[in-house]
Design a protein around this nucleic acid. Structure first.
Length: 431
RNA sequence: GUGGGUGUAGCUCAGUUGGCAGAGCAUCAGGUUGUGGCCCUGAGGGUCGUGGGUUCAAGCCCCAUCACUCACCCCA
């Protein structure tokens, strides 16, 4: 048997309800915040990611699906979307139409990591990016938007972590200071951090090895070394979050894994998954557009891990799926032929219809009707055909009525609308 | 990339010191010639992940390999 690729997965009907809910909620919410959807290729030139994400990141070093394309060019399945969105913003000259662009995209990303709970080699993200606005209020607005997305999805037990990474004016000095501070207690650091200390000392800050945590306990924190502009920016973000009553944690250890981030960095974590607990992350990347050959342009954005949200939603049991309104149970060859006609007509009239053409016994048909959860069953045998009618059975009340064949669609529609109004009252009673 | 755990029916899992491959659920059929859920009866369904090895004999022991899973790491 040929099996699917390691770390990839099939999304089956039993969880598609959760996916649809997340995507629909996102589309509605982001539209009200002024975002437009874009759709981009999943394949890009490798160079794009090397330049944007950073040569020395784990993603670029060892996690990308890269292979030769045409004309000596290497291609890569995108490991994240921000680089592609920025590329499109530049290439399509969107900044010339209006430097301010609020864009979002939903789709698969690919990273060759070891699979784990909440971590897949093909995973799905919602990416939202705002170009052309320097105001810290936009940073805060993105967090507000995320917060309300999770609220609408009824996902709670979340914490918002924020930090400021500084900017090219103040970060280099801090890096040097930190590096010097860490080398004074280099003995304590784990092997990875020994390496990081020189290449990118910021990454030592979010190392989880206990001895490293001890080593950095007294280390300087970025927020004490922010330049005046960065400090004011960070303060505004915090004030805006306070104003919207969004609880947050200032996390000096929060260092994004991608090189392009500056100033605001944030991550939203859940307690409902395993150790892969980040459901969203993002921040400001003012230098990226220019670094990719575009105009100097501020930008800020985030990514949401859809797979992880689905995992959380599914913990609460299956999400409501689609069940047929009507099940057609024909008896005998003539009835089966006619039921084909009826099922087409009903489906085309927007009635969710399921017909069984197998010719099995009525008992078997009824069992199947019950299993698929149909509200009504349309029974047609020789008797009914002779007098030009069919039997409609209400599966809940067991009521059966005879309906003339030429009035099937209208009758069913009437029954369904009645059902939609009634069960609300009855389900409230039962609670 | 590194470590731990697990692979037996569609699903969840038993399987004793190595000795005929099992249960529950699900499916299908019958009990009821044309009426679902409950009940009863029966049936189908297996390369015991894969490949080697030890043995008279391997689901069980040994080696390798693959997959799943959890954690490290990294991140959404």
């Amino acid at each position: 048997m040929i099996q699917l690729v390691r770390g990839f997965k099939d999304i089956l009907p039993d969880e598609i309800g959760a996916w649809n809910r997340i995507e629909k909620t996102t589309a509605d919410l982001l539209a009200s915040f002024g975002f437009s959807e874009i759709r981009l290729p999943i394949l890009e030139k490798t160079e794009l990611f090397r330049r944007s994400i950073g040569e020395m990141t784990d993603i670029v070093e060892k996690e990308m699906y890269t292979f030769p394309g045409s004309r000596d060019e290497m291609l890569t399945l995108r490991p994240e979307a921000t680089a592609s969105v920025a590329r499109a913003y530049i290439q399509q000259r969107l900044y010339a139409v209006d430097p301010i662009q609020k864009l979002y995209t939903i789709g698969p990303m690919f990273r060759k990591e070891r699979p784990q709970k909440g971590r897949y080699r093909q995973f799905y993200q919602i990416n939202a990016e705002v170009f052309g606005i320097e105001s810290p209020l936009v940073d805060a607005q993105l967090i507000v938007m995320l917060w309300s997305l999770f609220k609408r999805l009824e996902i709670f037990n979340l914490s918002v972590h924020i930090n400021s990474l500084g900017c090219p004016a103040c970060r280099p000095e801090f890096k040097n200071l930190l590096s010097g501070n860490l080398s004074s207690r280099g003995e304590l650091l784990c092997a990875d951090c020994q390496r990081r200390r020189e290449k990118n000392p910021l990454r030592v800050l979010d190392c989880k090895v206990p001895s490293c945590q001890d080593a950095i306990a007294g280390a300087p924190v970025m927020s004490d070394f922010l330049c005046q502009a960065c400090a004011r920016h960070f303060d505004s973000v915090k004030r805006a979050l306070n104003q919207q009553e969004i609880p947050y944690i200032i996390n000096h250890r929060l260092v994004r894994g991608l090189d392009y981030y500056c100033r605001t960095a944030f991550e939203i974590q859940t307690t409902q998954l395993g150790t892969q607990n980040a459901v969203a992350g993002g921040g400001r990347y003012d230098g990226l557009v220019e670094a990719l050959g575009g105009p100097s342009m501020p930008a800020v954005g985030f990514a949401v891990g859809i797979d992880r949200l689905v995992d959380i939603l599914l913990q609460r049991g299956p999400q409501p799926g689609s069940v047929p309104d009507v099940f057609i149970a024909p008896l005998g060859d003539e009835a089966i032929r006619r039921s084909f006609e009826w099922s087409c007509a009903l489906s085309l009239a927007d009635i969710k219809t399921e017909a069984d053409f197998s010719g099995k016994s009525l008992k078997a048909l009824m069992k199947r009707a019950d299993r698929v959860g149909a509200d009504f069953v349309l029974i047609a045998g020789d008797q009914e055909l002779q007098n030009g009618s069919v039997v409609v059975r209400n599966m809940k009340t067991k009521e059966q009525t005879s309906v003339p064949i030429d009035k099937i669609a209208r009758q069913i529609k009437e029954l369904i609308t009645k059902k939609i109004r009634n069960p609300e009252a009855s389900s409230q009673k039962s609670e």
